[in-house]
């Protein structure tokens, strides 16, 4: 078995400490009783109570959730199609532009995307609200989905699809019965990525939301702009916990799937 050299041990320890200590402090101090956020004054869950009585936060959370579910679902369909085009469609007129429009949103500064979408919505006379945020979020998250799905598609054995077609499947049947089950994990992680990107987005949502459609990040941003707020610490703790449970659960279940597949293969050989 390989062992880590002291240099690697130190860099991993320091690196992960740097990544996790700020979040741990946030979580610990969300249970602080006092109003001062940097002075410990006894354990209390009162900020969680305050948070759940705060109607404005609950409304914003509901809007955010709606937007995230709808936009990530549309983005997953469009992004999977786009990944298919990128990997399988071969050459076609305008391919470079297409690939540019897939990769550019991944790195495009949000202020530019937000501003340009807002100006589009105004030019076509679309009122800002939940719909415009959904359109905006779908557009940038479909690109992330397509990158995730296409990385799975390139490693996929195309002869399986061809076999299905030879055996009389239509193109769509071959996709549904052969390709989709194989790329499903990538499609699911694409959906989850699109979902969290939408939950998390502040800048594009501030450009494209209307007065009746404030999302949670917009609410959080206006609350913390001037300082630290214990209620936001409580909210952050809830969000971090949900993500941690999700990510740890997903990685455990993928570990189990891999172990099961290895076992199946072993049995098949014997």
């Amino acid at each position: 078995m390989r062992r880590l050299s002291w240099f690697n041990t130190v860099s991993l320890t320091l690196g992960f400490a740097f990544l996790y200590i700020p979040m741990l402090i946030l979580i610990v101090y969300s249970f602080n009783g006092g109003k001062l956020v940097t002075v410990w004054s006894g354990f209390s869950t009162k900020w969680y109570g305050e948070l759940f009585r705060n109607e404005a936060f609950l409304d914003a959370a509901w809007v955010t959730l709606k937007v995230a579910v709808v936009s990530s679902t549309i983005a997953t369909v469009l992004g999977t199609m786009a990944a298919y085009v990128m990997v399988r469609a071969g050459r076609f007129r305008g391919r470079t532009l297409f690939s540019g429009m897939i990769y550019a949103p991944l790195v495009m500064p949000e202020v530019i995307t937000g501003l340009s979408l807002l100006l589009l919505f105004i030019a076509i006379g679309l009122d800002r609200g939940v719909l415009t945020i959904v359109l905006a979020h779908t557009t940038f998250s479909m690109c992330y989905v397509s990158v995730v799905v296409s990385s799975r598609l390139v490693t996929f054995d195309q002869s399986l699809e061809e076999a299905a077609l030879d055996l009389g499947c239509t193109g769509f049947e071959a996709f549904r019965l052969v390709t989709l089950p194989i790329i499903a994990p990538a499609v699911i992680s694409g959906w989850l990525l699109a979902f969290t990107l939408s939950l998390d987005d502040l800048v594009i949502a501030s450009f494209t939301s209307g007065p009746s459609s404030t999302t949670l990040p917009i609410k959080i941003f206006s609350a913390v702009r001037l300082g630290v707020s214990p209620e936001i610490n409580a909210l952050s703790t809830i969000m971090i916990t949900l993500v941690a449970v999700g990510v740890i659960g997903a990685s455990l279940s993928s570990k189990r799937t891999i172990a099961k597949r290895a076992k199946d293969e072993q049995e098949a050989i014997q």
Partner: peptide, 16 residues
């Protein structure tokens, strides 16, 4: 894990 956690919250954590 941090990549999935809210960007806004991770920036905010440094304020305190």
């Amino acid at each position: 894990l941090p990549f999935w956690t809210s960007f806004l919250i991770r920036v905010y954590a440094w304020k305190a």
